[in-house]
Nucleic acid binder design. Structure first.
Lengths: 207, 207
DNA sequence: ACATCTTTTGGCACTGAGTGCCAAAGTCTG
DNA sequence: CAGACTTTGGCACTCAGTGCCAAAAGATGT
């Protein structure tokens, strides 16, 4: 569903639109990386793709969204999975499993783009925030979904569980990208394993 | 230090500047709440305070900062505390204690402003993100500081500890504000107690 | 192949956030 | 009160993002 079975089976119109969208995201990531996020305007990107600025902003609501398309793919897929898949067992464990499944189902090229995005974010304070945006809205929707599906009424505990999961994700993706993103998504999953297995002892962590 | 012993002891120039800053933040919070964040321009705020837009942006880097001045106060004080105070015992426990200390040391009026800010954020998707920004940059700086002070070299575990603390904070402040912010900061602290004491069992939370 | 309906695009003018610059005003020091 | 220093105002500017509508292009039925 998120792999890439979408190229030749769609009506021409949608195929073109999708191609434009990808060209925009790819070009943006490249230009932002080469010249810097702040020193690249949205017009630059639109020009390079030979598309009007208006079209760019119909595909991506903000410049940040344009830069973080890879993140959006991940979390969209995550929410899709959560809204359709089964939810049994401990919440944190379920969410963790879902992340793994989503990760392995993503586009071939996703690793590279995601890592490049991390580098870009690390170099761009203004973007730093928006990396969290996906996490935040995803948390909200995940909480709603999990509450509905499991009947867990304890809002505080449930939200805490989701937030802790995201904390683990966040930490893992950071350490992974700081290490240069070794071994693609398999490496990322290793860092996730590390983070999740570190969780139980975190409260006791002391100098 | 963050109470309010700053009114009559400062040179006139700084006193005025501080007053302008506060007027801007207060007026902004009021106008944003009354008319809505998106339907209030920065010029509106500047006009109301009878100050040029240029001055507004010398005091607050962005419109978001203007709206979330209360958050900034909290986290600035938190970082100050962390950079000067002692750091012994379990990291999460220390950070928790620091939050409590900072909370009790804040301005009289802080409760009201913070709660109003939460309501504003809840009503404004665009702001939703920036509430996390303080958390994020605070996490980074806190990690650095704690690492330096305790000699904890395990970046992953340390960051995880800080992130989990912030997750608890975030959850608590949300449930507190959703409950209408009962009992001011004492109520907030109760929610924090709840969140922190729920942490150990969160990994096992299941339907 | 053609007319028609629908979706997408381009281009333009506009709002609003945020910045650089410099002169004017205000504050501080002696 | 003079001169140093800081803050402010105002203007012109860049750039992100939007509303609008006409033109282009794909889809559909005959």
């Amino acid at each position: 569903m998120y792999a890439e079975p979408d190229l030749r089976e769609l009506p021409l119109r949608e195929r073109k639109k999708l191609r434009t969208r990808r060209a925009l995201a790819d070009t943006a990531l490249r230009l932002f990386t080469e010249r810097g996020y702040d020193r690249t305007t949205c017009d630059d990107v639109a020009d390079e793709v030979e598309v009007s600025k208006r079209t760019l902003f119909r595909n991506f609501a903000t410049k940040e969204d344009l830069a973080m398309a890879a993140d959006a793919e991940l979390w969209d897929a995550f929410l899709d999975e959560i809204e359709t898949g089964p939810l049994t067992g401990p919440v944190v464990e379920t969410l963790r499993r879902t992340i793994y499944e989503v990760l392995t189902g993503l586009d071939e090229d996703w690793d590279r783009r995601f890592l490049a995005t991390r580098a870009l974010v690390a170099a761009t304070p203004a973007l730093h925030v928006h990396g969290l945006r996906f996490c935040a809205t995803t948390i909200d929707r995940a909480v709603t979904r999990v509450a509905a599906a499991t009947g867990l009424a304890d809002g505080l505990r449930l939200r805490l569980a989701v937030e802790v999961t995201i904390a683990a994700w966040h930490t893992a993706s950071l350490t992974w990208s700081e290490a240069g993103g070794p071994d693609g998504r398999r490496g990322l999953i290793r860092h996730l394993d590390e983070a999740f297995s570190a969780l139980p002892d975190v409260l006791a962590l002391a100098p």
